[in-house]
């Protein structure tokens, strides 16, 4: 509970910091709109030109794009400390300052940044979701709402874990940090579209290794009423747990990396 309070308090303060430069903040928020708007425009143009992919129609495609966009940018907004700041903290030695305080390392890193500029990206994603629901005539039920909430929440956990890998790379001073981007940003780009349109190696990469398909696509397909691989209904609630499992594994690796960091110094 105290951790939540600490997080909220940090967020409040960091928001204040951002608003110290209102003009820059405004421009950057606008820039985010241009970015995510561009991405969504690509989806619109693709649908305009190709109509559909396999069994997925326009509404479905908007829904898949929307759920990924909302999940990814909610994470980037509220988890900015981990998704954006972490390697920087390690390289500049600010991780030492964090170690000097009586709180968990990940908690403090999470509390170190917020990115309210992403609000426009989240808005674009939401618009896409609404368009998708309308076109695909989604009938909302309590269970579907639950599946959606679970997918977004565990999707966020999965994305955070992917960025923690980047921090681990940094601690071992691996130079090829961009490699992780293939999983995080690559996963976002690939999984804006349903996983089953891709050839097997990509399907394996984003199902078994970075399980975006399990966390987001299985519940999304269930909500759209076109179950992925014709899997039974309950999988829509169980598969997203892969995100939590993934986070757990990465957390263990992170603990090990911290022990390494503390034995080698910076």
């Amino acid at each position: 509970m105290k951790t939540v309070r600490l997080y909220l308090r940090s967020m409040k303060m960091l928001m204040k910091c951002q608003l110290e430069y209102p003009f820059s903040f405004f421009l950057q928020t606008l820039a985010q709109l241009v970015m995510e708007g561009g991405e969504m425009m690509a989806v619109i143009l693709i649908i305009d030109r190709f109509d559909r992919v396999n069994q997925w129609e326009a509404g479905d495609l908007f829904f898949f794009f929307g759920i990924m966009s909302v999940t990814f940018y909610l994470t980037e907004c509220f988890g900015r400390g981990i998704t954006g700041n972490f390697p920087y903290l390690i390289r500049t030695g600010q991780l030492d300052t964090i170690l000097l305080r009586p709180r968990g390392v990940l908690t403090q890193v999470l509390c170190s940044a917020v990115d309210p500029r992403r609000i426009t990206c989240i808005a674009v994603g939401t618009v896409s979701l609404i368009i998708g629901c309308n076109l695909a005539r989604v009938q909302w039920t309590g269970l579907k709402v639950l599946a959606m909430a679970e997918a977004v929440l565990l999707g966020a956990v999965l994305i955070l874990a992917l960025f923690v890998i980047e921090a681990i790379f940094c601690i071992y001073s691996v130079k090829s940090v961009e490699l992780v981007n293939a999983l995080s940003y690559g996963g976002r780009s690939a999984c804006e579209y349903p996983i089953d349109i891709y050839p097997r190696p990509l399907r394996i990469l984003f199902t078994a290794i970075a399980p975006f398909a399990l966390v987001l696509h299985v519940p999304a397909a269930y909500i759209l009423g076109k179950p992925l691989y014709a899997w039974p209904e309950w999988t829509a609630f169980v598969c997203p747990l892969a995100g939590a499992v993934f986070f757990g594994l990465i957390y263990l690796a992170f603990q090990k990396a911290m022990r390494f960091y503390r034995s080698t110094g910076s």
């Binding site: 105290k2 309070r5 600490l6 308090r9 940090s10 303060m13 204040k16 910091c17 110290e20 030695g93 600010q94 300052t97 305080r101 009586p102 709180r103 403090q108």
Partner: peptide, 23 residues
Amino acid sequence: QRMQLWWDVPILDSYGLLKEIYR
């Protein structure tokens, strides 16, 4: 040569956060 307080906010706010961190 290294600051632990937050750059853009009043120092009282920084102290408030430290209070939270150290409970």
